[in-house]
Amino acid sequence: MLRSIASKRLFSQSLARLDTLAFVEAAHGKVTPASLSAIVAAKAIGKPVTAIVAGPDGAEAAASVSKIEGLSNVLVAKAPQYRHYLAEEVAPLLKEVVESRGFTHVIAPASAVGKSLLPRLAALLDVQPVSDIIRVEAPDTFVRPIYAGNALATVKSSDKVILVSVRASAFPAAETNGDAVPVEEVSASAESGNRTEFVSEDLVQSERPELGSATRVVAGGRGLKNKETFDALLEPLAEKLGAAVGASRAAVDSGFCDNSLQVGQTGKIVAPELYVAVGISGAIQHLAGMKDSKTIVAINKDPEAPIFNVADIGLVADLNEAVPELTNKL
């Protein structure tokens, strides 16, 4: 009995010294909003947080990360092989950093990069990651949605290093206006053995705010009939509201807009202040991506559409008339 108390005390003492490593993703030297939310989640764990930035543009991103309040320091790995965040390169680097510096937690945004990277790192560390958390209950206990957000599971990890990806829409973004903390360069000592080559990328250029972090979203579905109507009705409304444009799977599959604008279980998860769903019926998979929005508006001509079950304000009307009228009256 005595011995178990003694060992418990030792254990809790050693826990108190341990740290969280937050992986920060940047695009063109700019920290992504999802990474800023992940840092807030990292701080919620309650241990000191070290951020790590990778890539040849890392210096610029690291300088801005270093000003996030509450970080203890920032690591930067500037080698060119990290440019496109290939998991084959970044995972071995993180493994080395985690093992040489004794981190107990690794946090990453649940972005395309984070989702590709974290499970590969988990394999190298032999741990079971926790995906897409929406709440930190304790340093080892997290809440995450399952079944397209139809259930919330509270899970407790028993792993020696706890890997967590963070749903950006569930946490606010960290501010970058504190005093700069030290930035330290790191590099991997071992070859990664990577055989994957980056060939090209084709990113959608848009004037609109980024969908994942926008405070307002205007989304269209099958009811918009074609790309011309989609653009003609939604763009002016989004412009007026300063909103990002999103879409249902039906709209994306029909070619109304790019895949990257899909909102739902397998697309982007958003939780803006205002979500306007136009011509979207509200399938389970779509609701999974937007039902945590603060105010939901639905415009649909079908009064039975399931979207009306989650909408705060519903208008049963022909969208071809209602949307231009709404745009004019805003």
């Binding site: 741990v127 399952i146 509270t154 899970v155 909408a311």
Partner: peptide, 18 residues
């Protein structure tokens, strides 16, 4: 490695208006 402590319904949205 993960223990599921509980599974619950997500908070329901309050009824909207038409």
């Amino acid at each position: 490695r993960l223990e599921t402590l509980k599974v619950e319904e997500p908070p329901a949205r309050s009824a909207g208006v038409k």
